[in-house]
Amino acid sequence: MARMKFICDAERCIECNSCVVACKQEHNIPWGVNRRRVVTLNDGVPGERSISAACMHCSDAPCMAVCPVDCFYKTADGVVLHDKDLCIGCGYCFYACPFGAPQFPQDGAFGLRGKMDKCTFCAGGPEPDGSEAEFQKYGRNRLAEGKLPACAEMCSTKALLGGDGDVLADIYRQRAMARGKGSEVWGWATAYGRPEGKPSAPRPQDKPGPKAPANGNGGKS
């Protein structure tokens, strides 16, 4: 089975927030709940970078580990979902999540914290696929319709990609090869640092010899 993942290309994201709007509109998300948001690093500084963030559907999800009522489950596609009928809105998952993905509706009095809501990878939840109950609780089930998440498919610059991790990795690799840079902008070296004095990998155009083909896939079309 596929292993569903998101990847956001910081070289392409233009902070248009269309992914946020697409998600809100697709699932009729209430005010105050943001399943997806765009984060900008070094905002206003030349060279600023934006990245669209939501639930990353972790392989070893901390929200699943800390949930006291065990309302989380993972589908065969690797999508992390939860049962809202079981959720008690304790907020442990919010503290455990490194991405701030779990959201809690707060439209009531006295700081009411409702049941948790988060990105479902447009895969609905534990209600009959395409039913009204599923839409009301979890939003639309696009995977059951043969579609990918609305945010990724709506992205105008295709900065945000969604789907099987292997396919996404191939697309991103081809893209980074074609433009000769980008993988270093948001990757391991950015997150964990690069050892002092160790140069980054040479770019294709820096290498001597024949120039890389324009489509970046080794000349294959």
Binding site: C71, T75, D83, E127, D129, G146, G163, D164
Partner: peptide, 26 residues
């Protein structure tokens, strides 16, 4: 997991339980 069981997406009408059809579509 102690919640309700969920049906996989390939059981929905467009795929009718055909996993390969679902994966190819994805």
């Amino acid at each position: 997991y102690r919640g309700k069981p969920d049906t996989p997406p390939y059981m929905a009408a467009p795929f009718g339980g055909d996993v390969m059809k679902y994966e190819n579509a994805m």
